[in-house]
Simulated assay, not measured.
Amino acid sequence: GRRWSAAEIRLKSDADLQKLWAVLLRERNMLASVKLLHERRKTTMPHPERARMTRKSMAMIKVVLGER
Results as ranks from 00 to 15, higher is better:
L36R: 06
R10E: 15
K19Y: 01
N29H: 10
K35G: 04
V23M: 11
D16W: 03
K35H: 09
V63L: 14
Q18S: 14
L31N: 08
A51E: 12
K56E: 14
E39K: 10
L24P: 00
T44M: 06
M60A: 02
H38K: 14
W4L: 10
K56F: 04
L36Y: 04
K56H: 10
L11S: 12
M60H: 00
K12Y: 11
E67Y: 00
P46H: 05
D16K: 12
A7V: 12
L37W: 09
R41D: 10
D14G: 11
L37K: 07
A7C: 01
L11R: 11
L11V: 03
E67W: 00
K56L: 07
P46T: 02
N29D: 13
L20S: 01
A15R: 12
S13M: 04
S57L: 02
G1L: 07
K56R: 15
T43M: 12
S5I: 01
D14Q: 15
S13G: 07
E39G: 15
L37M: 10
V63N: 10
E27Q: 14
M45A: 02
R41M: 15
R68E: 13
P46E: 04
A59Y: 04
A15T: 07
A22Q: 14
K19L: 04
W4G: 00
K56S: 13
L65N: 12
S33H: 05
A51L: 15
R50G: 04
W21E: 13
A59F: 03
R41E: 10
R68N: 08
K12C: 14
V34Q: 08
L20F: 01
V23T: 08
W4S: 03
R68L: 11
H38V: 08
W21V: 02
T54D: 13
R28W: 02
R28G: 05
R52P: 00
L31D: 08
I61V: 11
H38R: 15
S33G: 08
D14P: 00
M60N: 03
N29Q: 10
K62F: 01
T44C: 02
E39W: 13
T43R: 11
R26K: 15
W21M: 09
K12T: 04
G1A: 08
G66A: 06
